[in-house]
Amino acid sequence: KLPPGWEKRMSRSSGRVYYFNHITNASQWERPSGNSSSG
Rank of each mutant, 00 (worst) to 15 (best):
R16L: 07
Y18S: 01
R9S: 02
Y19V: 00
S14K: 07
T24V: 03
Y18W: 06
N21A: 02
H22V: 15
Y19A: 00
V17N: 04
W6E: 00
G34L: 13
G5N: 06
S27E: 05
R12Y: 10
S27W: 15
G15H: 06
W29H: 05
S36Q: 11
A26D: 08
S14Q: 08
W29M: 06
S33Y: 10
H22Y: 15
R31W: 10
K8P: 08
L2K: 14
G15T: 03
Q28T: 06
E30N: 07
M10V: 15
N35M: 11
H22W: 14
S13R: 15
S13D: 09
E30Q: 09
S36Y: 07
E7N: 04
G15F: 04
W6M: 00
S27P: 03
S11D: 15
K8I: 14
N25S: 08
S33D: 13
Q28R: 05
W29T: 05
T24E: 03
S33H: 09
S37H: 10
S36R: 08
S13K: 15
H22A: 10
S11H: 15
Q28G: 02
N25A: 07
R16Y: 05
R31K: 09
E7I: 11
I23K: 06
N21S: 04
S13W: 08
E7R: 06
M10Q: 09
S11W: 07
I23P: 01
A26Q: 15
S13L: 12
E30C: 12
S33I: 12
P3Y: 02
S27V: 15
N25I: 04
N21I: 02
R31N: 07
E30A: 08
S38N: 12
N21W: 01
A26L: 13
S37C: 11
S36W: 08
R16M: 06
K1M: 11
A26G: 06
M10W: 15
P4E: 10
L2Q: 02
V17D: 03
S13Q: 10
S13C: 15
N35L: 13
M10S: 07
S14L: 09
P3V: 02
N35R: 09
M10L: 14
T24W: 04
T24I: 04
G39S: 11
T24S: 06
I23V: 10
G39V: 11
S33F: 10
R31S: 07
K1Y: 11
I23Q: 08
V17F: 09
P3C: 07
Y18D: 00
P32H: 02
N21Y: 04
P3I: 02
G15V: 03
G5W: 05
L2M: 05
N21T: 01
R9Y: 06
G39A: 13
S27K: 13
R12E: 10
A26E: 14
R31P: 10
P4Y: 12
S11G: 06
N35S: 12
W6I: 00
P32I: 01
P4G: 06
M10H: 09
W29P: 03
G34F: 14
S38L: 11
S27D: 02
S36C: 14
K1T: 14
M10N: 06
N35E: 13
S13V: 14
V17I: 13
F20L: 03
K8Y: 07
E7S: 09
S37R: 09
G34R: 09
S36L: 12
E30Y: 07
K8S: 07
L2F: 03
G5E: 05
S33Q: 13
W6T: 00
G15Q: 06
S38T: 12
S14D: 10
Q28H: 04
P4M: 09
P32W: 02
S14T: 14
S33E: 12
T24L: 05
T24R: 03
W29D: 04
P3D: 04
R31L: 09
T24F: 05
W29R: 05
S14V: 06
A26K: 15
S38E: 12
N35P: 14
S33M: 12
R9T: 03
Y18L: 02
S37F: 10
N35W: 07
F20A: 01
P32N: 01
Y19E: 00
V17E: 08
W6P: 00
R9M: 06
V17L: 06
N25G: 15
S11L: 13
W29K: 04
N21F: 05
F20M: 02
N35F: 12
R31T: 07
S37M: 11
L2G: 02
W6R: 00
F20T: 03
S38D: 12
G34Q: 11
N25T: 06
S11T: 10
G15K: 07
R16I: 06
G39C: 15
R12P: 14
E30R: 07
F20W: 09
R16H: 05
P32Q: 01
W6N: 00
S37W: 10
G15P: 02
S38H: 10
R9D: 00
E30V: 06
Q28P: 00
R31Q: 07
R31E: 09
L2R: 02
Y18M: 01
Y18F: 09
G39L: 10
N25H: 14
H22P: 07
S14W: 06
R12I: 13
F20V: 05
R9P: 00
K8R: 14
Q28M: 05
G5P: 08
K1E: 14
N25E: 06
S36D: 13
N25M: 14
S13P: 10
R12F: 08
P4D: 09
H22E: 05
H22T: 15
N25L: 13
P3T: 02
T24Q: 03
R16T: 05
K8V: 15
A26F: 09
S38R: 08
F20S: 01
G39M: 11
S14Y: 07
P32D: 00
S33W: 10
I23E: 09
W6H: 00
I23G: 04
P32L: 02
L2E: 15
M10F: 15
V17A: 07
M10T: 14
K1I: 14
Y19W: 06
Q28E: 03
R16K: 10
W29L: 07
N25Q: 14
H22L: 14
R9V: 05
S13Y: 12
G39F: 08
A26W: 09
N35K: 11
S11K: 05
S11V: 11
M10P: 03
S14H: 09
G5K: 01
E30S: 06
W29E: 04
W6L: 01
G34T: 11
I23T: 07
N21V: 02
P3W: 03
N35Y: 09
P3L: 04
F20P: 00
H22N: 11
W29N: 04
P32V: 01
G5Q: 04
S27C: 15
Q28C: 11
R12K: 13
S13E: 10
R9C: 14
K1G: 13
T24G: 02
S37I: 11
M10D: 03
P32S: 01
E7D: 04
G15Y: 03
Y19S: 00
N35T: 13
K1F: 12
G39T: 11
Y18N: 00
M10I: 15
I23A: 07
S33A: 10
K1V: 14
Q28I: 05
S11I: 12
T24N: 05
T24D: 05
Y18E: 01
S38C: 15
G39E: 12
S13A: 12
K1D: 15
G5F: 07
G15L: 05
S38W: 09
V17G: 02
R16S: 04
S27N: 04
P4I: 08
E7F: 06
E30H: 10
G34D: 13
G39Q: 11
H22I: 15
S14I: 05
Q28V: 04
S14G: 09
I23N: 09
N25D: 04
S13F: 11
W6Y: 02
A26N: 08
V17M: 08
N35A: 12
V17C: 10
Y18R: 02
Y18P: 00
T24M: 04
S38F: 10
E30T: 08
N35Q: 11
I23S: 06
L2D: 15
S38A: 11
N21Q: 02
S33V: 14
S37L: 12
S27M: 15
Y19P: 01
R31A: 09
S37G: 10
M10A: 07
Y19N: 00
G5L: 02
